[in-house]
Design a binder for these strands. Sequence first.
DNA 1: TTGCATGCAAAGTTTTTGCATGCAG
DNA 2: CTGCATGCAAAAACTTTGCATGCAA
Lengths: 157, 157
Amino acid sequence: MKKLRNTEQRKIILEELKKVNTHPTADEVYEMVKKRLPRISIGTVYRNLELLSKCGLIQKLELGCSQMRFDWNTNNHYHIRCIRCGKVEDVPVETMSRFEKILEGKSDYEIIGHRLEFIGLCPKCKKELKDLKEEKQKEFRKEECSGLQEKINRRFR
Amino acid sequence: MKKLRNTEQRKIILEELKKVNTHPTADEVYEMVKKRLPRISIGTVYRNLELLSKCGLIQKLELGCSQMRFDWNTNNHYHIRCIRCGKVEDVPVETMSRFEKILEGKSDYEIIGHRLEFIGLCPKCKKELKDLKEEKQKEFRKEECSGLQEKINRRFR
DNA sequence: TTGCATGCAAAGTTTTTGCATGCAG
DNA sequence: CTGCATGCAAAAACTTTGCATGCAA
């Protein structure tokens, strides 16, 4: 590993990240930083987010979506993710370090930590879904898939 | 949504997935299926994994890595991931549905579920790391980053 | 002065999609 | 037949990397 220098880009990336609670993706960080440093490149943003998280100055959130998200809050805390719009928010619950103990003697792994993520519907999506007569949709989907399900069950047992 | 047909490709993708406990990525599924259907395309694999998981026949694991992984076991269960090699295994611990209740009244979200993932070192990586004099590495890294950390702390408070 | 950091662009990786054709129902 | 599914290839989305140059220490 190499020594980290204190560049303008690095400083501003960190500053912008500390301004928000939205756990932005790399691209979102890029957009925020670009307002202050119009010539910054996306590569620099990726490189710095990677380095800063390696040094423990920020946290790389490897959440249940294909994109990485970054969090200036390096305290261990939990998140809740909206299954519909992908928004990620902090959850006001204390972390439970004793979780790791659950696995003692049950696994050959050396447990380092755990990640607990809640999945749900944010208020906005909750409302929008209601308007979509979600009940009807669900029934519809179930009906369509059940044919295949039965066939496959028959085949596989 | 459209009706699902029972094609050879779809059937074999499911069969191959049921053979393994390795929570393969889409590409790994593709490699497995290709042995039996050499002409199958990666697009078909993606489309089917997506459809099968939408129907609840398999589970899409959105774990802490950039690639999706798929699991034939649709029961709710926890996983442990090796932070070094990325391997994912099941964890012999019962799921705790009461977790969702923790958030009651503390969040505006409608909680649908939770995902608990343990992070650790698999036995193989544990051994390999020992040989790398990990202790020395850790000290080294800490020293290198502390300079920046201090500077930034001073600047930001 | 030294060598890490940057901007830029190209390339890599993973996933999605358009389209003509195939095939299950 | 009908229209969902497939193979193929191109494109999209996200991330990494090579290189010449810039700049912090």
